[in-house]
Write a protein that binds this DNA or RNA. Structure first.
Length: 430
RNA sequence: GUGGACGUAGCUCAGCUGGUUAGAGCACCAGAUUGUGGAUCUGGGGGUCGCGGGUUCGAGUCCCGUCUUCCACCCCA
């Protein structure tokens, strides 16, 4: 009986695995050079853990099961709750600030579509216990630092930045009640996706008062921070939030990534999670969903039963990223070779076969990658195989071996040289 | 969860208004070629035509259901 692959999952054949490794290795390297340490948790947790900040209905969007003891469990759809749990558990012992990263494998029971699967990898980095926007800037820098390392430029992508804190202050001064904020966020979050009239209609549904609605629409039309300062009368809280945002943009310029940063009041993001700076990285053409999203969430540790400690971070999934890199021609088969043999040993005189095998495994014991053909085949065929394996050198074991010599062929240049066996091994391992 | 499109070899696809034994290119394997790698030629393996049911003398082709994939919505942690 043939059993099909599960909906929304991927099989990683060697070429796909090479892509995945390329992405993950890049994430890890950039995390480390920006001062983050790696952590991980279990792939399943108590179901309750995911309902704390997202509510009961989230259960329909994740894979859950009951264990033999009757406990409700869920496969992790995100790693932030695990991070919160782990940090809370050792909050008094951990040196601060905490700068951690992880590349968890996550599962969500959603309908798959472009850039969204049921199982994926997501790079997460977080800085815990730094209140300064410098931490937000550092987090954004790390995301851009990685994306630049893949070859993307400011012409390809931009990080759109806003502030929940500022937006809340502006909406309050426009006349929105505190308890209406979340509902209004949900509408504002859709502004970029909807035609103006549809957006207007949704806003009308949410905000009854004509004057308040006009003020909100005016706010959302602001294209610069200056425009915000000029159109809105800010209270002290709003002014502080705007000052913080200005400081963030200054820092990003200082860090050398100013050309990537764009102010966009339409970046609101999901639910009540975020408390300060919020950002999303998009392709400039904005034809794909966000490559990366994050921001400040100062209440998270407390919501998970810990002390009130500030935090900021982001998540970047592999699916959209891969689509983007492919579209930009930055993922090519030639840059993602799955085989890189140092030395292919071609055996053309069968009487030396065992000596050749000895040689292959001697090279391997010494730490280099050596390969050979299982079958006795013509030299032509073996050279073809060497080429297919991306071998740097092919060592030919033939008649010359009776004089303790080998022919070493440089596969890139085609040049070859007759060498003594010991000399050959030494130069291969050099 | 809602709506739409697609499904023929490992991949990209052809297959006419239903009619013999379902094809091509690429890929894979072997040979031409017994010591020299991107070529050429020859041959070979590989298909329950996504799956199930129906209509028909006869279904890859028409109808229904179902599954997957893709696209949009909901949601996006």
């Amino acid at each position: 009986m043939k059993i099909p692959a599960v909906k929304g999952t991927r099989d990683f054949y060697p070429p796909q695995m090479a892509v995945r490794n390329y992405l993950v290795d890049g994430w890890k390297a950039v995390s480390l050079r920006n001062g983050f340490e790696e952590y991980d948790g279990p792939i399943f947790e108590h179901l309750k853990m995911y309902q704390i900040k997202s509510g009961e209905e989230i259960a329909s969007q994740l894979f859950s099961f009951t264990d033999r003891g009757g406990r409700d469990m869920a496969i992790r759809p995100e790693i932030t709750p695990t991070l919160a749990r782990m940090v809370n558990q050792q909050i008094n012992a951990l040196p601060r600030p905490i700068k951690w990263f992880s590349v968890p494998r996550l599962c969500r029971a959603e309908r798959p579509q472009k850039g969204r699967l049921r199982e994926f990898f997501q790079w997460n980095i977080d800085i815990i216990d730094v209140e300064d926007v410098l931490a937000d800037a550092e987090v954004i820098f790390t995301a851009i630092d990685y994306l630049r390392s893949t070859g993307l430029t400011a012409a390809d992508i931009a990080v759109r930045i806003s502030s929940r804190r500022m937006l809340a202050a502006l909406l309050r001064s426009a006349g929105i009640e505190q308890d209406q904020l979340d509902g209004v966020y949900a509408v504002l979050d859709k502004k970029a996706k909807l035609p103006d009239e549809a957006f207007e209609a949704m806003l009308t549904e949410r905000i009854g008062d004509e004057t308040v609605r006009r003020r909100v629409a005016e706010l959302m039309a602001a294209e610069t921070i200056e425009a915000i300062e000029n159109t809105a009368h800010l209270d002290a809280e709003g002014a502080a939030a705007v000052g913080e945002l200005r400081r963030l943009f200054d820092l990003l310029s200082l860090m050398g990534i100013g050309e990537f940063a764009v102010f966009d009041i339409g970046v609101v993001r999901g639910l009540a999670y975020y408390t300060g700076v919020v950002f999303e990285v998009y392709d400039r053409a904005a034809t794909l969903r966000a490559v990366c999203g994050g921001g400040r969430y100062d209440n998270l540790l407390r919501d998970f039963g810990g002390p009130a400690v500030t935090a900021t971070g982001f998540g970047m999934g592999d699916a959209v990223l891969e689509i983007l890199l492919r579209e930009k021609g930055l993922l090519t088969d030639s840059t993602l070779s799955t085989r890189n043999v140092d030395c292919f040993v071609a055996i053309v005189a069968d009487e030396f076969r065992d000596r050749a095998i000895e040689l292959v495994f001697r090279v391997r014991r010494a730490g280099a990658c050596a390969e050979f053909s299982y079958k006795a085949a013509g030299l032509k065929k073996q050279l073809k195989q060497a080429q297919a394996l991306n071998a740097r050198y092919t060592v030919i074991v033939g008649e010359e071996f009776s004089e303790n010599r080998l022919t070493v062929k440089n596969m890139a240049t085609g040049e070859q040289e007759l060498m003594a066996v010991e000399q050959c091994i030494e130069s291969l391992l050099a």
